[in-house]
Nucleic acid binder design. Structure first.
Lengths: 200, 200
DNA sequence: CTCTGAAGTAGACATTGTCAAGACGTAGGC
DNA sequence: GCCTACGTCTTGACAATGTCTACTTCAGAG
Protein backbone atom coordinates (compact mmCIF):
# COMPACT_ATOMS: atom_id res chain seq x y z
CA UNK A 1 0.00 0.00 0.00
CA UNK A 2 1.26 3.47 -0.85
CA UNK A 3 2.47 5.77 1.86
CA UNK A 4 -0.25 8.21 0.89
CA UNK A 5 -2.94 5.58 1.46
CA UNK A 6 -1.38 4.38 4.72
CA UNK A 7 -1.28 7.91 6.05
CA UNK A 8 -4.93 8.51 5.21
CA UNK A 9 -6.01 5.20 6.72
CA UNK A 10 -4.06 5.84 9.90
CA UNK A 11 -5.64 9.28 10.19
CA UNK A 12 -9.11 7.88 9.55
CA UNK A 13 -8.64 5.26 12.21
CA UNK A 14 -7.65 7.89 14.76
CA UNK A 15 -10.50 10.22 13.81
CA UNK A 16 -13.08 7.46 14.07
CA UNK A 17 -11.77 6.48 17.48
CA UNK A 18 -10.90 9.77 19.16
CA UNK A 19 -11.93 12.59 16.85
CA UNK A 20 -9.96 14.86 14.54
CA UNK A 21 -8.17 16.61 17.40
CA UNK A 22 -6.34 13.42 18.20
CA UNK A 23 -4.72 13.28 14.78
CA UNK A 24 -1.03 14.02 15.04
CA UNK A 25 1.22 14.28 12.01
CA UNK A 26 3.94 12.33 13.75
CA UNK A 27 1.67 9.64 15.11
CA UNK A 28 0.15 9.12 11.71
CA UNK A 29 3.64 8.83 10.23
CA UNK A 30 4.64 6.32 12.87
CA UNK A 31 1.57 4.18 12.19
CA UNK A 32 2.32 4.32 8.49
CA UNK A 33 5.86 3.16 9.27
CA UNK A 34 7.64 6.15 7.79
CA UNK A 35 9.63 9.08 9.12
CA UNK A 36 7.85 12.04 10.65
CA UNK A 37 8.46 14.07 7.51
CA UNK A 38 7.35 11.61 4.85
CA UNK A 39 3.67 12.68 4.93
CA UNK A 40 4.70 16.17 3.87
CA UNK A 41 5.62 14.83 0.46
CA UNK A 42 2.00 13.82 -0.10
CA UNK A 43 0.07 16.44 1.84
CA UNK A 44 0.90 20.09 2.23
CA UNK A 45 0.27 20.01 5.99
CA UNK A 46 -2.09 18.63 8.59
CA UNK A 47 -5.04 20.41 7.03
CA UNK A 48 -4.07 18.80 3.73
CA UNK A 49 -4.76 15.37 5.20
CA UNK A 50 -8.18 16.52 6.34
CA UNK A 51 -8.86 18.00 2.92
CA UNK A 52 -8.04 14.70 1.22
CA UNK A 53 -10.27 12.83 3.64
CA UNK A 54 -13.07 15.32 3.10
CA UNK A 55 -12.90 15.07 -0.67
CA UNK A 56 -12.84 11.28 -0.49
CA UNK A 57 -15.87 11.30 1.79
CA UNK A 58 -17.90 13.59 -0.46
CA UNK A 59 -17.12 11.42 -3.47
CA UNK A 60 -18.29 8.33 -1.61
CA UNK A 61 -21.44 10.11 -0.54
CA UNK A 62 -22.18 11.34 -4.04
CA UNK A 63 -21.68 7.85 -5.43
CA UNK A 64 -24.01 6.24 -2.89
CA UNK A 65 -26.73 8.83 -3.37
CA UNK A 66 -26.43 8.58 -7.14
CA UNK A 67 -26.72 4.81 -7.02
CA UNK A 68 -29.93 5.05 -5.03
CA UNK A 69 -31.74 8.21 -6.12
CA UNK A 70 -32.47 7.29 -9.72
CA UNK A 71 -34.79 4.34 -9.26
CA UNK A 72 -36.04 4.22 -5.67
CA UNK A 73 -39.82 4.52 -5.26
CA UNK A 74 -39.36 7.00 -2.40
CA UNK A 75 -36.15 8.83 -3.29
CA UNK A 76 -36.12 11.01 -0.18
CA UNK A 77 -36.32 8.02 2.08
CA UNK A 78 -33.76 6.00 0.16
CA UNK A 79 -31.29 8.87 0.07
CA UNK A 80 -31.79 9.41 3.76
CA UNK A 81 -30.88 5.78 4.33
CA UNK A 82 -27.91 6.03 1.97
CA UNK A 83 -26.68 9.11 3.80
CA UNK A 84 -26.88 7.37 7.14
CA UNK A 85 -25.18 4.28 5.75
CA UNK A 86 -22.27 6.29 4.38
CA UNK A 87 -21.91 8.22 7.61
CA UNK A 88 -21.97 5.20 9.89
CA UNK A 89 -19.72 3.15 7.63
CA UNK A 90 -17.21 5.98 7.34
CA UNK A 91 -17.32 7.88 10.61
CA UNK A 92 -13.75 9.05 10.11
CA UNK A 93 -14.64 10.77 6.86
CA UNK A 94 -17.90 12.07 8.17
CA UNK A 95 -16.42 13.78 11.17
CA UNK A 96 -14.23 15.85 8.90
CA UNK A 97 -16.21 16.42 5.71
CA UNK A 98 -18.46 19.21 6.90
CA UNK A 99 -15.99 20.98 9.11
CA UNK A 100 -15.02 24.06 7.17
CA UNK A 101 -12.55 24.94 9.87
CA UNK A 102 -10.69 21.67 9.37
CA UNK A 103 -10.65 20.87 5.70
CA UNK A 104 -11.00 24.14 3.80
CA UNK A 105 -14.48 23.63 2.38
CA UNK A 106 -14.39 27.11 0.92
CA UNK A 107 -10.74 27.30 -0.06
CA UNK A 108 -9.62 23.88 -1.26
CA UNK A 109 -10.65 23.38 -4.89
CA UNK A 110 -10.72 19.60 -4.81
CA UNK A 111 -12.87 19.55 -1.67
CA UNK A 112 -15.22 22.15 -3.11
CA UNK A 113 -15.69 20.12 -6.28
CA UNK A 114 -16.39 16.93 -4.35
CA UNK A 115 -18.86 18.68 -2.05
CA UNK A 116 -20.60 20.15 -5.08
CA UNK A 117 -20.93 16.68 -6.56
CA UNK A 118 -22.74 15.52 -3.43
CA UNK A 119 -25.00 18.54 -3.43
CA UNK A 120 -25.88 18.02 -7.06
CA UNK A 121 -26.88 14.42 -6.44
CA UNK A 122 -29.06 15.67 -3.64
CA UNK A 123 -30.77 18.13 -5.95
CA UNK A 124 -31.42 15.36 -8.43
CA UNK A 125 -33.06 13.37 -5.65
CA UNK A 126 -35.27 16.33 -4.79
CA UNK A 127 -36.24 16.69 -8.44
CA UNK A 128 -37.54 13.14 -8.40
CA UNK A 129 -39.30 13.62 -5.09
CA UNK A 130 -41.22 16.74 -6.00
CA UNK A 131 -41.60 15.75 -9.63
CA UNK A 132 -40.18 18.79 -11.34
CA UNK A 133 -36.82 20.39 -12.13
CA UNK A 134 -35.04 22.15 -9.34
CA UNK A 135 -34.95 25.63 -10.66
CA UNK A 136 -36.69 27.66 -8.02
CA UNK A 137 -36.33 28.62 -4.40
CA UNK A 138 -39.02 26.19 -3.28
CA UNK A 139 -37.10 23.21 -4.55
CA UNK A 140 -33.89 24.44 -2.98
CA UNK A 141 -35.76 24.79 0.29
CA UNK A 142 -36.69 21.15 0.02
CA UNK A 143 -33.13 20.16 -0.69
CA UNK A 144 -31.76 22.03 2.30
CA UNK A 145 -34.38 20.61 4.62
CA UNK A 146 -33.80 17.03 3.46
CA UNK A 147 -30.08 17.46 3.75
CA UNK A 148 -30.36 19.01 7.18
CA UNK A 149 -32.42 16.13 8.46
CA UNK A 150 -30.09 13.47 7.15
CA UNK A 151 -27.04 15.36 8.27
CA UNK A 152 -28.38 16.08 11.70
CA UNK A 153 -29.41 12.51 12.35
CA UNK A 154 -26.08 11.18 11.13
CA UNK A 155 -24.23 13.68 13.31
CA UNK A 156 -26.22 12.74 16.39
CA UNK A 157 -25.69 9.05 15.70
CA UNK A 158 -21.94 9.47 15.40
CA UNK A 159 -21.15 12.11 18.00
CA UNK A 160 -24.04 12.11 20.45
CA UNK A 161 -25.01 9.32 22.84
CA UNK A 162 -28.54 8.98 21.50
CA UNK A 163 -28.79 5.39 22.70
CA UNK A 164 -28.74 6.57 26.30
CA UNK A 165 -32.21 8.08 25.90
CA UNK A 166 -33.91 5.04 24.43
CA UNK A 167 -36.40 3.13 26.58
CA UNK A 168 -35.29 -0.36 27.62
CA UNK A 169 -37.20 -2.32 24.99
CA UNK A 170 -36.08 -0.24 22.00
CA UNK A 171 -32.86 -1.06 20.17
CA UNK A 172 -30.91 1.67 18.40
CA UNK A 173 -31.32 -0.16 15.09
CA UNK A 174 -35.09 -0.21 15.52
CA UNK A 175 -35.12 3.47 16.46
CA UNK A 176 -33.12 4.33 13.35
CA UNK A 177 -35.58 2.39 11.23
CA UNK A 178 -38.45 4.24 12.87
CA UNK A 179 -36.91 7.63 12.19
CA UNK A 180 -36.21 6.71 8.58
CA UNK A 181 -39.76 5.51 8.19
CA UNK A 182 -41.25 8.68 9.67
CA UNK A 183 -39.00 10.85 7.56
CA UNK A 184 -40.02 8.98 4.40
CA UNK A 185 -43.65 9.30 5.31
CA UNK A 186 -43.44 13.01 5.98
CA UNK A 187 -41.58 13.67 2.75
CA UNK A 188 -44.09 11.67 0.74
CA UNK A 189 -47.00 13.39 2.41
CA UNK A 190 -45.54 16.81 1.78
CA UNK A 191 -44.75 15.94 -1.81
CA UNK A 192 -48.30 14.74 -2.29
CA UNK A 193 -49.63 18.02 -0.92
CA UNK A 194 -47.59 19.77 -3.57
CA UNK A 195 -49.32 17.87 -6.34
CA UNK A 196 -46.99 14.92 -6.75
CA UNK A 197 -48.68 11.54 -6.98
CA UNK A 198 -48.59 9.96 -3.52
CA UNK A 199 -46.38 6.97 -3.01
CA UNK A 200 -47.90 3.76 -1.80
CA UNK B 1 -14.50 39.71 35.29
CA UNK B 2 -13.30 36.49 36.86
CA UNK B 3 -10.44 34.57 35.38
CA UNK B 4 -12.75 31.64 34.86
CA UNK B 5 -15.12 33.75 32.77
CA UNK B 6 -12.30 35.38 30.81
CA UNK B 7 -10.86 32.00 29.97
CA UNK B 8 -14.21 30.71 28.74
CA UNK B 9 -14.86 33.84 26.70
CA UNK B 10 -11.43 33.72 25.13
CA UNK B 11 -11.94 30.07 24.22
CA UNK B 12 -15.39 30.78 22.79
CA UNK B 13 -14.01 33.57 20.65
CA UNK B 14 -11.34 31.29 19.23
CA UNK B 15 -13.78 28.44 18.61
CA UNK B 16 -16.24 30.70 16.83
CA UNK B 17 -13.50 32.08 14.63
CA UNK B 18 -11.28 29.09 13.88
CA UNK B 19 -12.87 26.02 15.41
CA UNK B 20 -12.10 24.03 18.55
CA UNK B 21 -8.76 22.77 17.22
CA UNK B 22 -7.43 26.29 17.36
CA UNK B 23 -7.98 26.53 21.11
CA UNK B 24 -4.68 26.46 22.91
CA UNK B 25 -4.45 26.47 26.67
CA UNK B 26 -1.63 28.99 26.59
CA UNK B 27 -3.21 31.28 24.04
CA UNK B 28 -6.40 31.35 26.06
CA UNK B 29 -4.40 32.21 29.18
CA UNK B 30 -2.58 34.97 27.32
CA UNK B 31 -5.85 36.49 26.14
CA UNK B 32 -7.22 36.32 29.65
CA UNK B 33 -4.11 38.13 30.81
CA UNK B 34 -2.91 35.44 33.18
CA UNK B 35 -0.07 32.97 33.32
CA UNK B 36 -0.17 29.81 31.26
CA UNK B 37 -1.01 27.76 34.35
CA UNK B 38 -3.79 29.88 35.84
CA UNK B 39 -6.57 28.17 33.86
CA UNK B 40 -5.66 24.89 35.50
CA UNK B 41 -6.99 26.20 38.78
CA UNK B 42 -10.43 26.52 37.24
CA UNK B 43 -10.53 23.67 34.74
CA UNK B 44 -8.96 20.27 35.08
CA UNK B 45 -7.45 20.42 31.59
CA UNK B 46 -8.21 21.45 28.03
CA UNK B 47 -11.15 19.07 27.86
CA UNK B 48 -12.45 20.68 31.05
CA UNK B 49 -12.84 23.99 29.24
CA UNK B 50 -14.80 22.31 26.48
CA UNK B 51 -16.95 20.55 29.06
CA UNK B 52 -17.81 23.86 30.74
CA UNK B 53 -18.65 25.41 27.38
CA UNK B 54 -20.78 22.43 26.46
CA UNK B 55 -22.76 22.51 29.69
CA UNK B 56 -23.29 26.26 29.34
CA UNK B 57 -24.53 25.79 25.78
CA UNK B 58 -26.99 23.06 26.69
CA UNK B 59 -28.40 25.18 29.50
CA UNK B 60 -28.89 28.11 27.14
CA UNK B 61 -30.56 25.84 24.62
CA UNK B 62 -32.86 24.32 27.23
CA UNK B 63 -33.85 27.76 28.46
CA UNK B 64 -34.65 29.06 24.97
CA UNK B 65 -36.67 26.01 24.03
CA UNK B 66 -38.54 26.10 27.32
CA UNK B 67 -39.38 29.76 26.85
CA UNK B 68 -40.86 29.05 23.47
CA UNK B 69 -42.38 25.58 23.57
CA UNK B 70 -45.09 26.16 26.12
CA UNK B 71 -47.27 28.68 24.30
CA UNK B 72 -46.36 28.77 20.62
CA UNK B 73 -49.17 27.82 18.22
CA UNK B 74 -46.80 25.63 16.22
CA UNK B 75 -44.33 24.34 18.82
CA UNK B 76 -42.22 22.36 16.35
CA UNK B 77 -41.68 25.40 14.18
CA UNK B 78 -41.00 27.73 17.08
CA UNK B 79 -38.51 25.35 18.66
CA UNK B 80 -36.81 24.91 15.33
CA UNK B 81 -36.40 28.68 15.16
CA UNK B 82 -35.21 28.83 18.75
CA UNK B 83 -32.67 26.12 18.09
CA UNK B 84 -31.30 27.97 15.08
CA UNK B 85 -31.22 31.22 17.00
CA UNK B 86 -29.23 29.72 19.85
CA UNK B 87 -26.83 28.04 17.45
CA UNK B 88 -26.17 31.12 15.35
CA UNK B 89 -25.93 33.43 18.34
CA UNK B 90 -23.54 31.07 20.14
CA UNK B 91 -21.52 29.37 17.43
CA UNK B 92 -18.67 28.82 19.86
CA UNK B 93 -20.84 26.81 22.19
CA UNK B 94 -22.56 25.00 19.39
CA UNK B 95 -19.39 23.75 17.77
CA UNK B 96 -18.48 21.99 21.00
CA UNK B 97 -21.74 20.90 22.62
CA UNK B 98 -22.43 17.82 20.53
CA UNK B 99 -18.88 16.66 20.14
CA UNK B 100 -18.60 13.72 22.48
CA UNK B 101 -14.92 13.43 21.61
CA UNK B 102 -14.28 16.96 22.88
CA UNK B 103 -16.42 17.55 25.91
CA UNK B 104 -17.13 14.16 27.47
CA UNK B 105 -20.83 13.96 26.75
CA UNK B 106 -20.93 10.48 28.21
CA UNK B 107 -18.46 10.90 31.03
CA UNK B 108 -18.80 14.40 32.45
CA UNK B 109 -21.73 14.51 34.90
CA UNK B 110 -22.43 18.22 34.59
CA UNK B 111 -22.47 18.05 30.81
CA UNK B 112 -24.70 15.00 30.84
CA UNK B 113 -27.20 16.74 33.12
CA UNK B 114 -27.30 19.86 30.94
CA UNK B 115 -27.73 17.80 27.77
CA UNK B 116 -30.55 15.89 29.44
CA UNK B 117 -32.26 19.15 30.30
CA UNK B 118 -32.23 20.14 26.63
CA UNK B 119 -33.54 16.78 25.56
CA UNK B 120 -36.35 16.92 28.08
CA UNK B 121 -37.46 20.32 26.80
CA UNK B 122 -37.48 18.86 23.34
CA UNK B 123 -39.70 16.01 24.48
CA UNK B 124 -42.11 18.47 26.04
CA UNK B 125 -42.27 20.30 22.72
CA UNK B 126 -43.07 17.06 20.94
CA UNK B 127 -45.80 16.33 23.46
CA UNK B 128 -47.48 19.58 22.54
CA UNK B 129 -47.01 18.98 18.84
CA UNK B 130 -48.54 15.53 18.70
CA UNK B 131 -51.00 16.25 21.47
CA UNK B 132 -50.24 13.42 23.85
CA UNK B 133 -47.66 12.40 26.42
CA UNK B 134 -44.34 11.15 25.15
CA UNK B 135 -44.40 7.66 26.49
CA UNK B 136 -44.01 5.50 23.44
CA UNK B 137 -41.55 4.80 20.68
CA UNK B 138 -43.56 6.77 18.13
CA UNK B 139 -43.22 9.98 20.10
CA UNK B 140 -39.52 9.42 20.61
CA UNK B 141 -39.19 8.91 16.88
CA UNK B 142 -40.75 12.31 16.40
CA UNK B 143 -38.41 13.88 18.88
CA UNK B 144 -35.31 12.43 17.25
CA UNK B 145 -36.44 13.48 13.80
CA UNK B 146 -37.23 17.05 14.89
CA UNK B 147 -33.97 17.31 16.72
CA UNK B 148 -32.03 15.90 13.79
CA UNK B 149 -33.54 18.43 11.42
CA UNK B 150 -32.83 21.40 13.64
CA UNK B 151 -29.39 20.16 14.49
CA UNK B 152 -28.48 19.38 10.90
CA UNK B 153 -29.60 22.75 9.62
CA UNK B 154 -27.77 24.57 12.39
CA UNK B 155 -24.63 22.58 11.70
CA UNK B 156 -24.75 23.30 8.00
CA UNK B 157 -25.35 26.99 8.66
CA UNK B 158 -22.37 27.23 10.97
CA UNK B 159 -19.83 24.94 9.36
CA UNK B 160 -20.86 24.55 5.77
CA UNK B 161 -20.84 27.24 3.06
CA UNK B 162 -24.52 26.87 2.26
CA UNK B 163 -24.73 30.40 0.92
CA UNK B 164 -22.51 29.44 -1.99
CA UNK B 165 -25.29 27.33 -3.47
CA UNK B 166 -28.02 29.94 -3.34
CA UNK B 167 -29.23 31.50 -6.60
CA UNK B 168 -28.38 35.19 -7.05
CA UNK B 169 -31.71 36.63 -5.99
CA UNK B 170 -32.05 34.62 -2.78
CA UNK B 171 -30.58 35.88 0.48
CA UNK B 172 -29.46 33.46 3.15
CA UNK B 173 -31.93 34.99 5.58
CA UNK B 174 -34.78 34.39 3.18
CA UNK B 175 -33.63 30.84 2.58
CA UNK B 176 -33.55 30.18 6.32
CA UNK B 177 -37.07 31.52 6.63
CA UNK B 178 -38.18 29.28 3.79
CA UNK B 179 -36.68 26.20 5.39
CA UNK B 180 -38.25 27.03 8.75
CA UNK B 181 -41.59 27.55 7.04
CA UNK B 182 -41.43 24.26 5.17
CA UNK B 183 -40.35 22.42 8.28
CA UNK B 184 -43.24 23.89 10.26
CA UNK B 185 -45.67 22.99 7.53
CA UNK B 186 -44.44 19.41 7.29
CA UNK B 187 -44.58 18.93 11.05
CA UNK B 188 -48.10 20.35 11.27
CA UNK B 189 -49.25 18.23 8.36
CA UNK B 190 -47.81 15.08 9.85
CA UNK B 191 -49.27 15.88 13.26
CA UNK B 192 -52.66 16.40 11.64
CA UNK B 193 -52.41 13.03 9.94
CA UNK B 194 -51.90 11.53 13.35
CA UNK B 195 -55.15 12.93 14.62
CA UNK B 196 -54.00 16.25 16.07
CA UNK B 197 -56.12 19.24 15.13
CA UNK B 198 -54.42 21.00 12.19
CA UNK B 199 -52.90 24.40 12.86
CA UNK B 200 -54.12 27.36 10.88
C1' DC C 1 26.60 9.64 -17.86
C1' DT C 2 24.30 13.64 -16.26
C1' DC C 3 20.43 16.13 -14.75
C1' DT C 4 16.03 16.57 -12.63
C1' DG C 5 12.51 15.85 -9.66
C1' DA C 6 10.03 13.02 -6.48
C1' DA C 7 10.28 10.48 -2.19
C1' DG C 8 12.48 9.72 1.79
C1' DT C 9 15.46 10.81 6.05
C1' DA C 10 17.39 13.45 10.07
C1' DG C 11 18.04 17.70 12.69
C1' DA C 12 16.47 21.94 14.55
C1' DC C 13 13.14 25.34 16.45
C1' DA C 14 9.24 27.49 18.43
C1' DT C 15 5.07 26.16 20.60
C1' DT C 16 2.06 23.16 22.97
C1' DG C 17 -0.19 20.48 27.27
C1' DT C 18 0.80 19.43 31.64
C1' DC C 19 3.54 18.22 35.97
C1' DA C 20 6.03 20.06 40.06
C1' DA C 21 7.34 23.48 43.22
C1' DG C 22 6.87 27.70 45.09
C1' DA C 23 4.73 32.71 46.15
C1' DC C 24 0.91 35.45 47.60
C1' DG C 25 -3.15 36.77 49.99
C1' DT C 26 -7.08 35.82 53.02
C1' DA C 27 -9.92 33.49 56.53
C1' DG C 28 -10.28 31.22 60.85
C1' DG C 29 -8.43 29.20 65.38
C1' DC C 30 -5.48 30.10 69.25
C1' DG D 1 -0.75 39.27 67.76
C1' DC D 2 0.62 34.57 65.22
C1' DC D 3 0.04 30.05 62.86
C1' DT D 4 -2.18 27.14 59.65
C1' DA D 5 -4.72 25.91 55.71
C1' DC D 6 -6.36 26.91 51.33
C1' DG D 7 -7.47 28.94 46.96
C1' DT D 8 -5.23 31.49 43.43
C1' DC D 9 -1.55 32.47 40.68
C1' DT D 10 3.35 32.26 39.01
C1' DT D 11 7.66 30.35 37.17
C1' DG D 12 10.31 26.49 35.56
C1' DA D 13 10.73 22.23 33.60
C1' DC D 14 9.65 18.19 30.28
C1' DA D 15 8.20 15.49 26.43
C1' DA D 16 5.63 15.88 22.31
C1' DT D 17 4.01 18.35 18.26
C1' DG D 18 3.92 21.02 13.48
C1' DT D 19 6.80 22.47 10.31
C1' DC D 20 11.22 24.56 8.32
C1' DT D 21 15.71 23.40 6.19
C1' DA D 22 19.08 20.50 4.50
C1' DC D 23 20.68 16.11 3.19
C1' DT D 24 20.29 11.33 0.71
C1' DT D 25 18.44 8.07 -2.71
C1' DC D 26 16.80 6.66 -6.74
C1' DA D 27 14.20 6.25 -11.21
C1' DG D 28 13.67 8.13 -15.67
C1' DA D 29 14.70 11.56 -19.63
C1' DG D 30 18.00 13.71 -22.40
Amino acid sequence: MSVQRSVLDAALEIIAADGPDAVSMRDVARRAGVSHQAPYHHFTDRAGIFAAISAEGFLKLAAEVRAVAAHAPNPARSCFEAYLRVAMTNPGHFRVMFRGDLCGLTTHAEVKAAADQSFNELLRMVERTIGRPVDDAAALTWATLMWSTAHGFATLLIDFPLARRLPPGLSLEQHIDDVVELMGEMAARQAASMGVAPIA
